[in-house]
């Protein structure tokens, strides 16, 4: 089954980001929202880990949360709005929110 992993906590100083990446299935995807979008920040360690995911890995980030933090998404990350967020949740078999 495919799983969309929903991250909303900062990737630094918290286990969620590391554990999520470590346990990703081959057909899973990741959506970054809230402080998890900091994982796309410039030359950071989390950004390098995301860049190292297999080519074509389904990585998404929520537009307004990126925007609020003054961040922009690299080419390997698809930016979505809220309707896109909802559409994504339906595209995967299940959603795992890392609360």
């Amino acid at each position: 089954m495919t799983t969309l992993h929903l991250l909303s906590h900062s990737p630094v100083g918290d286990d969620r980001f590391d554990s999520c990446l470590r346990l990703l299935g081959s057909r899973d995807g990741v959506l970054l929202t809230g402080d998890a979008t900091y994982a796309l920040r410039g030359d950071s360690l989390p950004a390098r880990e995301l860049a190292a995911l297999p080519k074509g890995f389904p990585l998404f980030a929520l537009d307004e949360d990126l925007h609020a933090r003054g961040l922009s998404a690299p080419a390997h990350c698809t930016v979505v709005d809220y309707p896109g967020f909802v559409e994504l949740c339906g595209r995967f078999d299940k959603v795992n929110g890392w609360l």
Binding site: L23, G25, V95
Partner: peptide, 18 residues
């Protein structure tokens, strides 16, 4: 281990992380 965990997470209909 990590590989067994990936198989485990894949197997269930629903995941709830708290």
């Amino acid at each position: 281990d990590d590989a067994a965990l990936r198989t485990l997470l894949d197997r269930f209909d629903l995941l709830v992380t708290l």
